[in-house]
């Protein structure tokens, strides 16, 4: 990811910084200029709880360029408690233990790095609820 793009989206990636629509009150993530639910243009910043559940998942055996060192890893569609869905990796869980409907919580982890000398990209991933895993 380019340096400006990484910088521009950091709050979304580190902490799921989201919006709530001033017109229909629905949560919006990632942020948009126009509400996808009611087409209104005014939104306010909000924080999401980071809680959600697995809507679907897959284990990636053939990783795209930049992710080879992490393969195999599990990707998921996570339905967040506030409504939006995100595509994200699951972490701290073995692939065979993942289930649709499993409650998960957001953590900030390393997504990728540009070699040994380039920037490190951090972002959201999801894991099983810590206290249930313990």
């Amino acid at each position: 990811m380019s340096i400006p793009r990484n910088w521009r989206t950091r709050q979304q990636r580190y902490s799921l910084k989201a919006e709530v629509c001033n017109t229909c009150n629905k949560h919006i993530f990632p942020p948009r200029d126009v509400c996808p639910h009611c087409a209104a243009e005014k939104q306010s910043w909000t924080n999401l709880s980071g809680q959600g559940e697995v809507f679907s998942y897959t284990t990636m055996y053939n990783a795209p360029a930049g992710f080879e060192e992490y393969a195999p890893y599990t990707m998921a569609l996570v339905k967040l408690a506030e409504g939006p869905m995100v595509t994200a990796q699951l972490t701290d869980v073995d692939a065979q233990d993942v289930k649709i409907g499993m409650p998960v919580e957001m953590v900030t982890r390393k997504l990728s790095q540009e070699g040994e000398e380039g920037q490190i990209l951090y972002g959201y991933k999801f894991r099983p609820m810590l206290r249930e895993a313990a």
Binding site: T9, P30, M60, N62, P64, T87, L121, G123
Partner: peptide, 12 residues
């Protein structure tokens, strides 16, 4: 920005 950067491929 919100799918590919997370490590997903088209097959994924």
């Amino acid at each position: 920005e919100y799918e590919v950067s997370q490590g997903i491929s088209f097959v994924g």
